[in-house]
């Protein structure tokens, strides 16, 4: 004869079994996170430097590693926080050299660097990545290698400007037309490493005393000595329009 104890145990086991069958599987709680690199129109269509050179790029190679997305609560603030305190972290393994001057696809001009599947759903509101020296390929030895043609007053110059200073960028939530990084179960979300070339070359279409031009370099000065580009000071890396904290490496 069964005791009340054993009957209660059986009932509990039965109910627990039914409840656990109803639990979502890992697949139902996860999605795919995509990582894009974007140089914006300036990279693909060219720009006018602060000293009046019309510049078009054949290639803008950036070499990226340690690309990591975070869910942070409270949200990470690159202005006040050094470390990214997070609840969830997703890393894209590997090192990638991307040409920002080339269109990613007809549907999306950004360059897809990579994606990671089966990652926890939630809002990925912080992103970090490193710019490192390429170990092989066309940009070998450089973190940033820009190749193109510049023209001013009929003078045409072919240029190659390389930067070998390794840095890490740490940004908060993407700032742009829409919010990014919201990964729904079974869904796909994207994050973007955005590179603002006007922080290097300035913007000749804006007044000389515009803030962007006060901090940028003359193109002719860059031709003479590309090493004047200090990636820690330039703040090349953004998350959309949001600034990143820049950490020097090495």
């Amino acid at each position: 004869m069964k005791t009340p104890f054993s009957i209660l145990t059986l009932v509990l086991m039965l109910v627990a079994g039914i409840m656990l069958v109803g639990c979502p599987s890992d697949e139902e709680r996860t999605g795919t996170l995509q990582f894009y690199a974007e140089g914006e129109e300036r990279a693909r269509e060219g720009l006018v430097s602060k000293d009046g050179w019309s510049i078009s790029f054949d290639h803008i190679y950036v070499t990226l590693s340690d690309i990591t997305a975070y869910q942070t609560d409270p949200p990470y603030d690159p202005y006040t926080q050094v470390t990214v305190d997070h609840q969830v972290r997703v890393s894209l393994e590997g090192t990638y050299t991307v040409d920002l001057a080339k269109v990613g696809s007809a549907a999306d001009p950004r360059k897809l660097v990579g994606q990671v599947s089966n990652q926890p759903a939630g809002h990925y509101n912080a992103l970090s990545w490193r710019m490192v020296k390429a170990a092989s390929g066309p940009a070998i030895g450089y973190c940033l290698l820009m190749i193109g043609i510049a023209e001013k007053d009929g003078e045409i110059v072919e240029f190659t400007i390389g930067v070998d200073q390794e840095v890490e960028f740490r940004g908060g939530e993407y700032v742009g037309d829409e919010r990014k990084g919201m990964l729904e179960p079974r869904g796909t979300a994207d994050l973007e490493m955005t590179f603002h070339l006007d922080h290097i070359f300035g913007d000749g279409l804006k007044p000389a005393d515009d803030e962007i031009n006060l901090d940028a370099f003359d193109f002719e000065a860059l031709l003479a000595d590309p090493t004047i580009i200090d990636l820690v000071e330039v703040h090349l890396g953004h998350v959309g329009e949001g600034h990143c904290r820049v950490i020097p490496l090495g």
Binding site: M19, L20, G22, C23, P24, E28, R29, Q71, D73, P74, P75, Q87, V88, P120, A121, G122, H123, N125, G172, E173, V175, G176, G240, E241, G242, H243
Partner: peptide, 26 residues
């Protein structure tokens, strides 16, 4: 140019962190 600021209203923060996937009853 742009930026985002977060403001806590009502004394409790949001639940943007990772969910366990289990209901409280479970």
């Amino acid at each position: 140019h742009g930026d985002i600021v977060y403001i806590s209203v009502g004394g409790s923060s949001d639940t943007s962190g990772r969910a366990s996937g289990y209901a409280p009853l479970q």
